[in-house]
Write a protein that binds this DNA or RNA. Structure first.
Length: 869
RNA sequence: GCCCGCGUGGUGGAAUGGUAGACACAGGAGACUUAAAAUCUCCAGGCCGAAAGGCCGUGCCGGUUCGAGUCCGGCCGCGGGUACCA
């Protein structure tokens, strides 16, 4: 054989792994277990570079752990429910189920050639009734434990299509299909009581040492614990209280009005008798439900005419306004505003000509307020001008705490801890999701379905005629027979719940299901006990909050219901968040000015290949199907092989950082692998051509190597051990790109080395091993060519010999006043004083000193010398 | 708006507070070849200089330090999340 033929090599070794069954995970007492998991994919139809990157990283870890003696679990499945399947059915006919399973087959077919060390026997899709039936069982258990309940919540409502819209389906405040202005509307929905766990989820973040600090911080801010003051303003007309919650009680003396949410009970009550209030509330209900839309919306206010008294001064009356920026979900849905020390309040007061009190705390002296509020940093000491709390200087937090104490002592307020975290609404008015297993009965109310009736399966058709997905709304709502059932409690005719579950529910426990994927209960304790927790979880940073927080909640809830051991309450021991693969977005506009997106492969030099129309280029963003800025890895694999694709996605970018995909570079990766293959072949040929005693001396050299016999051999062996050390550290710390750079350097040295054939032979075999987590097929091939026994995948990972890592002399840079001016070479363990002497004898130093004495000489052993003049 | 990141040559990027630019891509020069491809060797941050060497340089402004890409403060730009995209 004279050429590196990836396709042939890869097919052969994948077959060999399959035959040996080495990736099939079984419980074992002899080896430590290691569970590595990558966030499972949504079956959109094609794998993309982000998948290749994600699964290759996980595979490197899995293969490395296998060769370091671990019992590895590395499963794969499909996050298969969700909107795109319904959209596809809506756009081009067909059925979400057929579309989804077809996509899964396609994507599995695209993934398998990557040679991932996955235990495919554990594969499942969340849309399998065997999976979502167990999810329904979990729901019933949660219901039993009081972890699920119903309440009203707002949704995006499209008044033309008469349907609920996802946030993604609201574009610039309008429905994506109808173009109608979206409204907010209340519906009764199911909620998980995640808020019961706010404190626990917050505190436990401190135990997640192997999670990125940024993710822990984001979750901490998301949970948003705050200690504030709750108290009432008394109405001047009827004496009724308006209860407010504030995290800034220290600004109470700057209050200029009391604001209530448009959804506050008082606002609703006023709307009943006052049409103007009703109109204002309707105005506030326009637009989508996202926090971003609410926060960025123009601030609107309405004066109710009601007045309230300031708690510290009955003579001081404040107006009560309805304001659209006050959320009913947080606190009491009512606040007081302090324009001097809050920019949003100030803007609002200026807009509606409300009174603005001069600043009354300050870093220097109080200032009259113009257009900018004075907001001192929380940690800065602030002078306290109004003395009602008895303190006159404090940091922000001290002032807040003092005010709370003051109010509690005076008896007009209570310190209250609140969390920003809201309960998790799981109801979705859609077909392609896990049905919520409850029944609505006129006599009995909401009744849970009996466990023996699970799964409550989605109907495939309507008694022989296909379900109509083209009509807006949830097809389950209008299904002629599925909805009708009997009440599990009384046996009378009743109706099924037609809402399905949020797809985040599906992905909140799949990691546990992988430990017993075919069980007839959600989990099997013995298996969960053995395999949990996930030792290394890998996925996109975009999941830093929702998916990971929901999973942490779900694991706790499953533990409470006896489905997971206590230790699994934090299910992911270590988390690595990879960056995204990004690409430019190519856009044109249709006749209505709406954006139309184009695939990179359809664009050439800024123009559409088909029509020559110029495209607008939008800067790189996360590859997403809806923006069509995706690159198909299948082309790369077909052209160069899986090892090239794997090597390439790992080599060019640090894993945690976003990487912009460019076509150039895959070629280079392939060239390198070809060079490695050729070198291995040349070494193998040497044996075949009978280079004297190669096999025998190889055996000797494999057992041990003694330094000092031959300088060339020493050099290569030292480099080899250094590379083993660096690559091992690189793999363990997700420094894949740096590890690959070291492998390049080592191979470059090997290919130029004139060391003995047997020494080169040894170096090459170790190189193949070190590369094997990244390029498993090529490594197997080389391993076998060079007489390795068995599979390299199962061969023990090479160990660096510490004695070979020690250098006798080191090169120290000499800085003069922090700028590098010279180098000296000194024995490694020379003491500081000696080093200083040598440094001061250096020509460049003598020249710079010009006879003077240095002010200071800093010697950092093994690092640097700095002479301060 | 708010929370969290990121910003280094023509490009991807390397660098426990200690020689900025490892390793690679693209580029240039050369070897081999009838030729091309492939392969191999060498060069390469910018400016000045024949060279030795010098000056500048990690988004911008300032600070801490003997020493800052790295730590701190303030900006600018880009990205992720923002609870119904997954």
């Amino acid at each position: 054989m004279s050429r590196y033929t990836a396709a042939e090599i890869e097919a052969r070794w994948q077959q060999a792994w399959d035959d040996a069954g080495i990736f099939r995970a079984k419980r074992s007492k002899n080896k430590p277990k290691y569970y590595v998991l990558e966030m499972f994919p949504y079956p959109s139809g094609r794998i993309h570079m982000g998948h290749v990157r994600n699964y290759t990283m996980g595979d490197v870890i899995a293969r490395y752990k296998l060769s370091t003696g671990h019992n590895v679990l590395h499963p794969m499945g499909w996050d298969a429910f969700g909107m795109p399947a319904e959209n596809a059915a809506m756009a081009s006919g067909g059925h979400p189920k057929d579309w989804t399973y077809g996509n899964i087959d396609d994507m599995r077919g695209q993934m398998k050639p990557l040679g991932l060390s996955i235990d495919w026997s554990r594969e499942f899709a969340t849309c399998d009734p065997e999976y979502y039936g167990q999810q329904q069982a979990l729901f019933l258990d949660f219901l039993d434990k009081g972890l699920v309940y119903r309440k009203n919540a707002v949704v995006n409502w499209d008044p033309v299509d008469m349907t609920v819209l996802a946030n993604e389906q609201v574009i610039d405040g309008k429905g994506w299909r109808s173009g109608a202005e979206v409204e907010r509307r209340e519906l009764t929905q199911w909620f998980f009581k995640i808020s019961d766990f706010s404190e626990e989820l917050l505190e436990a973040l401190d135990t997640l040492d192997d999670w990125p600090a940024k993710v822990r911080l984001m979750q901490e801010n998301w949970i948003g614990k705050s200690r504030g003051l709750q108290f009432s303003f008394e109405r001047t007309d009827d004496g009724d209280p308006i209860e407010v919650y504030t995290t800034r009680p220290d600004t109470l003396m700057g209050a200029s009005f009391v604001g209530i949410s448009p959804d506050h009970p008082l606002a609703k009550e006023l709307a009943e008798s006052n049409p103007e209030v009703a109109v204002f509330r309707a105005e506030c209900a326009k637009g989508g439900t996202t926090e971003e839309a609410l926060e960025k919306a123009e601030k609107l206010g309405f004066d109710t005419g009601i007045k309230v008294r300031h708690p510290l001064n009955p003579e001081w009356e404040l107006p009560v306004w309805i304001a659209n920026f006050i959320l009913m979900d947080y606190g009491t849905g009512a606040i007081f505003a302090c324009p001097a020390h809050d920019q949003r309040d100030l803007d609002f007061c200026r807009k509606y000509d409300l009174p603005v009190i001069d600043t009354f705390f300050a870093l220097q002296d109080p200032q009259p307020v113009g257009t900018e509020a004075f907001v001192p940093p929380k940690t800065d000491k602030v002078k306290w001008v109004d003395h009602f709390t008895g303190i006159d200087e404090a940091t922000g937090q001290e002032a807040i705490d003092a005010t709370i104490d003051f109010a509690e002592n005076a008896g007009w307020g209570t310190g209250v801890t609140k969390y920003r975290l809201r309960d998790w609404g799981l109801s979705r008015q859609r077909y392609w999701g896990c049905p919520i297993p409850v029944v609505h009965c006129d006599a009995c109310g909401v009744v849970p379905e009996k466990k023996e009736n699970l799964p409550v399966e989605l109907p495939y058709d309507e008694g022989g005629t296909p379900i109509d997905f083209a009509t807006p709304g949830n097809p389950l709502d209008r299904h002629p027979t599925w909805r009708d059932c009997t009440c599990p409690a009384c046996g009378q005719p009743a109706q099924r719940e037609t809402d399905t579950m949020d797809t985040f529910v599906d992905s909140s426990w799949y990691y546990a299901r992988f430990t017993a994927p075919r069980a007839t209960t959600p989990t099997v304790m013995e298996e969960a006990e053995y395999w949990m927790n996930v030792d290394q979880y890998i996925g996109g940073i975009e999941h830093a909050i929702l998916h990971l927080l929901y999973s942490r909640f779900f694991a706790r809830a499953m533990h409470i219901c006896g489905h997971l051991p206590k230790k699994a309450c934090e299910p992911f021991d270590a988390l690595f968040t990879q960056g995204m693969v990004t690409h430019e977005i190519y856009q044109t506009r249709d006749a209505n000015g709406r954006p139309v997106y184009h695939l990179p492969e359809d664009v050439e030099e800024g123009r559409l290949k088909a029509t020559g129309e110029a495209v607008e280029i939008i800067p790189s963003a996360k590859m997403s199907k809806s923006k069509k800025n995706v690159v198909d890895p299948v082309n790369i694999i077909e052209a160069y092989g899986a090892d090239t694709a794997r090597w390439f996605v790992l080599s060019d970018s640090p894993p945690e950082r976003d990487v912009e995909w460019t076509a150039a570079g895959a070629e280079a990766a392939h060239k390198f692998l070809s060079r490695v293959w050729r070198k291995a072949r040349d070494l193998a040929d040497m044996r075949d051509e009978g280079v004297k005693d190669l096999d025998q001396s190889l055996q000797e050299i494999m057992d041990s190597y003694e330094l000092g016999i031959n300088a060339m051999d020493d050099e290569l062996m030292r480099a080899m051990h250094k590379t083993i050390d660096e690559v091992t550290k690189g793999v363990e710390s997700f420094g894949f790109n740096a590890a690959i750079a070291k492998l390049y350097a080592f191979f470059n040295q090997l290919s130029k080395s004139s060391a003995a054939a047997s020494v080169q032979w040894r170096a090459m075999r170790v190189l193949a091993q070190l590369m094997s987590p990244m390029t498993p097929h090529l490594s197997e091939e080389i391993w076998t060519m060079l007489g390795g026994e068995g599979l390299v995948a199962e061969a023990p990972w090479p160990e660096a010999d510490a004695a070979m890592l020690i250098e006798d002399t080191v090169t120290l840079p000499i800085q003069i006043n922090g700028k590098r001016r010279a180098e000296i070479s000194v024995p490694k363990d020379m003491d500081k004083a000696e080093v200083e002497k040598v440094a001061l004898a250096n020509d460049a130093v003598i020249r710079s000193l010009d006879g003077a004495q240095p002010k200071k000489v800093i010697v950092v052993p093994g690092r640097i010398v700095n002479v301060v003049i």
